[in-house]
Simulated assay, not measured.
Amino acid sequence: MIAKEISLRPANETDAWVLSAIHIAAIKALPETFYTQKELLAWRNNRNQPDGSNIFKNMKVESFWVAVEGDVVMGFASFFVDELIALYVHPKYQGRGIGRALVEHFCNEASDRGIDKVITTASLYAEGFYLRLGFTAIQKVPHYLRSGVVVPVTKMSKTLATAQETVYKDGIQ
């Protein structure tokens, strides 16, 4: 079987339910290492079945991008200007560079807009992932889930080279 190439594209409204399913599956796959079962359940909005309505609403203000192979959506990221809001990859596709590609896309979009620093709020599971991508931990803070449950997370940032700086660094003026 020939592996298809993974590509990124903007999410569309019909993707909302699939993104909800990915969100739920990714959280269900996490061990109770950093968060309790109750916290993990609250993090997935107390859902076992997808409900794309919140994602659909968020699509009106956030940029959503999906990683696809053929017509299969494997993961997604959402961001608003300089903040990466969500990043989820379905567990059966993790370890293939999909999360890295989505974060790099977000950073490139921000850099192209002249933004020199981006931020994200990382779960304790994802902190090491973001550190490997050049983010710096700022501080541990409480994160309030929709259900009112509070979980510890890490605020992180990354300094970017803007498009202008990249041009000068590469010797093109």
Rank of each mutant, 00 (worst) to 15 (best):
F129T: 08
Q49D: 11
D51Q: 11
M156I: 12
A137F: 04
T33E: 14
Y144L: 06
Y35H: 08
L133C: 12
R47D: 07
E5S: 13
K4P: 12
I85L: 02
W17Y: 01
A86H: 15
R96K: 14
F79W: 11
K155W: 01
N108M: 04
L41E: 02
M74T: 03
R146M: 09
W17V: 10
L131G: 04
V89N: 04
S111C: 10
K117W: 07
P91C: 13
D112F: 07
F106Q: 03
V150P: 00
L84R: 05
A122V: 05
E69Q: 15
E127C: 13
E104I: 00
D116V: 15
E32V: 13
A77E: 07
T120I: 08
V68A: 12
P50L: 12
L160D: 13
A29Y: 01
I6F: 05
A25S: 13
L19H: 06
G114E: 08
A161N: 14
V73N: 02
M59A: 09
R96M: 12
P10L: 09
M1C: 09
V103M: 04
P142G: 08
M156V: 10
E39H: 01
V72T: 15
S53G: 04
F135M: 14
E32N: 13
M1V: 11
V61I: 15
A126T: 04
I172E: 00
G114N: 03
V81Y: 01
K57P: 01
L41S: 04
T162C: 04
N54E: 13
T121W: 00
I172T: 06
N12G: 13
E5T: 12
T36C: 01
Y130S: 11
R44N: 11
G114A: 04
E127A: 15
G52A: 11
M59S: 07
K92M: 10
S53P: 02
A163M: 09
D116T: 14
N108Q: 07
D116G: 15
G52D: 11
F135P: 12
M1R: 08
L124R: 06
D112P: 03
Y125P: 01
S53C: 05
A77W: 00
D82I: 07
L133A: 10
S63C: 14
T14S: 14
G128V: 10
R146S: 11
L84N: 06
A29D: 06
D51P: 13
A42H: 01
P142Y: 02
V167K: 05
T121C: 11
K57G: 02
F56L: 15
V149C: 03
A16T: 08
L160R: 14
T121A: 05
E62M: 06
R113D: 09
V141A: 01
C107Q: 11
S147R: 00
Y168D: 08
K28Y: 00
L40Q: 08
A122Y: 00
H105E: 02
Q164F: 00
P152Q: 07
I98A: 06
S123F: 00
S78Q: 02
V18P: 05
K140H: 08
P31E: 13
